[in-house]
């Protein structure tokens, strides 16, 4: 089982996501802003990062993902998105958005688990 970091400013989303992943036997660490998020990833070196795109600023998630990659942190990132696509912030896996997959809110437990397992498994294969 894996250690997963969830970074989201919505505590309700944090709790719900944590519970889903805990029920699959994963350990969870959480943060509600970019500063704390960076810190827990550095210190705890999780196997997977779940990152919300819009926190204090609409692009906080992008910013943090870029910072991780720039600092050589290659842990897979699963990004939570909400309405970013609808409001014209088109994005995909790229250098600007160096993440491995997306989950659109509201989050269905099955989809979340599937995507998490998939990313963790890919890492093992590598």
């Amino acid at each position: 089982m894996a250690l997963i970091a969830i970074i989201d400013d919505d505590i309700d989303i944090l709790d719900a996501s944590s519970l889903v992943l805990k029920s699959k036997g994963h350990d969870i660490v959480t943060a509600t802003n970019t500063t704390d998020g960076y810190k827990i990833v550095k210190e705890r070196k999780p196997n997977l990062i779940i990152l919300d795109v819009m926190m204090e600023e609409p692009d906080d998630g992008f910013y943090l993902a870029q910072k991780f990659r720039k600092d050589g942190i290659k842990i897979p990132i699963l990004m939570y998105t909400s309405v970013s696509k609808a409001i014209g912030m088109e994005f995909d896996k790229s250098e600007i958005v160096p993440v491995d997959d997306f989950v659109e809110k509201p989050i269905s437990p099955e989809e979340l688990v599937e995507k998490v397992e998939n990313l963790l498994h890919l890492k093992e294969v590598k």
Partner: peptide, 20 residues
């Protein structure tokens, strides 16, 4: 867009809890 985002945020939280 702003309204959509503001409405979706609480909805996503509630749906998250109910799904669990």
């Amino acid at each position: 867009s702003m309204v959509a985002h503001e409405m979706k945020t609480p909805l996503a939280a509630v749906q998250g809890f109910l799904n669990i």
